[in-house]
Amino acid sequence: MTTADASPPPRGATTPATDPTPAADPALATDPALATDPAPAPAAGAAPGTGVGVDVDAVPLRHPGRWAAGVAIGVLAAMGVHSLVTNRNFQWGTVGDYLFAEPVLRGLWATVYLTVIAMAIGIVGGIVLAILRMSPNPVVAGAAWLYIWFFRGTPLLVQILFWSFIGALYPRLSLGIPFGPSFVSGDANHIVPLFAAAVLGLGLNEAAYMAEIVRAGINGVDAGQTEAASALGMSRALTLRRIVLPQAMRTIIPPTGNETISMLKTTSLVSVISYNELLNATRLIYARNFQTIPLLIVAALWYLALTSVLTVGQHQLERRFARGTLARVGERR
């Protein structure tokens, strides 16, 4: 830290030894570029003869092992591509026919929708559970523990099936004041409870996992931060919202990204209760035309596309919440 603002970066320090002052000026001018992007420096060092005169002109070490591994993987990849192209059972034409078919796109939309809602329930529920779990009230903390214990302790598939058969337990569901009047009431086996079963099954289970992720994140924040906030007269809630959670985000976001990607694929489980998401949509098609493999490929391609988009989004979020960390300063050096 101290060297960073006291003296110019290492490059500037070496140039005066070999070069007189004129060379020092351009070196200083390129400093910001070096500071923001460390890549150019090693690249210039690796390529002999380029770069400025001070670079070491050495014969690079050879890596035959790397070459062998590269060739082996190249051969395997060629075999894979060859089979993809020549094996007619893939039926790429059929894949193309159904990739943008209307029922598939509707299923895709349902999958995205389900993922978003289930993760929203999972994240909000997880934060609430994590805070309850750390409550000084043992009854509250115990209830949160019990929830996590139950939802992590039973298979998700069982939970989804349970929610879908909730009609056997409560034939009518209503929304209203407890023990008072109800505003909305309906048959539990109506179409909305099917979506509700899918969302509840996925979201409530996710909340249990998210709770542990959030709790680990909060516990990872230095106790001195809470003390400093307290000393400034900040309340417990304000400290949590403004000081602790933003810092905890840094450790919470990468696993949450993984959970979201995982959730996107886990939504396929609700096809067992015939909720018409991506997998179920393709299953319905191949049940009629028996083009099983091409349609599973259609589903797989869409899952891959969506997880790729999510991976990029996760990376962006991580960068956003990494501000003010040592890693960032590391980049600048």
Binding site: D222, G224, Q225, E227, A228, A229, S230, A231, L232, G233, M234, S235, I243, P246, Q247, F321, R323, G324, T325
Partner: peptide
């Protein structure tokens, strides 16, 4: 908390909020 506002404290390990400028 209200009373603490009137007492400033400086810590050995600074305890600045790292996510804020």
């Amino acid at each position: 908390a209200r009373k603490r506002r009137e007492i400033g404290m400086v810590f050995q390990r600074f305890n600045l909020f790292p996510h804020l400028t």
